[in-house]
Write a protein that binds this DNA or RNA. Sequence first.
DNA 1: ATGTGC
Length: 476
Amino acid sequence: MELNGFERLSELEWHLPATDAMRVPVIIYADEALMRDMNDKVREQAVNVAKLPGIVQASYAMPDAHWDYGFPIGGVAAFDPEEGGVISAGGVGFDISCGVRCLHTGLKTQDISRVKEQLADTLFQRIPAGVGSTGAICLDSREMDEMLAGGASWAVQNGFGETADLERIEEGGKMTGADPAQVSQQAKKRQRDEMGTLGSGNHYLEVQRVVEIYDQRIAMGYGLTQDDVVISIHCGSRGLGHQIGTEFLREMAIAAASLNILLPDRELACAPIGSPIARRYLGAMRAAINCALANRQILTHLVRQIFSQLIPQARLPLLYDVSHNTCKVEQHEINGRKRKLHVHRKGATRAFGPGHPDLPPALRATGQPVLIGGSMGTASYILAGTERGMQLAFGSACHGAGRAMSRHQATRLWHGRDIINQLARRDILIRSPSCRGVAEEAPGAYKDVSAVIEVADRAGLAHKVAKLVPLICIKG
DNA sequence: ATGTGC
């Protein structure tokens, strides 16, 4: 990326002052190497977002940012309804409420060594993964609406998991304001038999090992110790979220054209907060959040069933579940004034600091667990939200390593089979229905997750707590 | 991300 024009406010904070039609500056959190390696399109897209009506404070990009449809992935933008703020489907992305949840197991690495291969094979056999994967559950139209209104809470009521899980999920497992009536029949049809499935792309289910603790006090608060085995699930709202994103992007673009709204980029189609289309989108998007929460809850139940058969002494309570593709109404203090903002996070993890009222009592003293999945075969990290982070980007942090090249480029450089063999030599068991999918997700196709995490930690977006490395990865 | 797409 061209760095000309940026003011370097600190080592890790790059500031592009508001010029021309920009209403606010762009702020990117990154080190110089990450900045240089970012495509110019990230800058262009973040600048375009800064031009949208009612944007507050800045158009932010996290250290894992890369360009995407309209808004960059790793982008955070908040809008104030009292200043003509907007909602944009592109600011959330296609995989609505894609996120990560992490489960404890109560086990140490050696407890699973004897059954590791069997565990990998059983997880792969029983957890539906890949493009178009379907599960054992088929929802009729009434059940679909209940699921879309109830999220993980609906899943627990229907026998998937435990009530204790709910307080460890954003929104208590149930996003309020979801309106199943705003979800198209086509979106519901696509989702009918996709509950409890992983999907494809960067989604995965990993059995991981805690290899490093950076903050003993917070790690203790999270119930994490060295050499613990944990399970991370990364997936979203599958076909339903994708369909909603597609439909509303199209509809918002058409509406903008007919209303003569000048967009800096057609892909930034948006609508004023409070307008009928924005309200319908929010209702549908919140239903998709519930779909993703229910999906991860059902997957959790499947994992627990498998563990109870293979390692009966294992107990799998939920550490936390957090999304990184959402638009949420949140209260933030700007220049001493409390304002209700519509915060878009696209490939950015919510990272609320200590004392935040939305956190459950057990996590309020430490700050919210910020679950960050790395690329396949590298490392994942658990961070904690900080008070400082609440001021830096509305309580947000990065969401992963971030792609360094396109999927197409990756398939020209690597073969999936080679990647699987290389990782097997490091005792990382990959199971996937798609060799091509594995090639697209080759570790080399991503930025260095550790460099991204160092920036997030040192910039103060979130605070490093633990590092996890994969033992088994079920890849979509 | 996705009932993937040149």
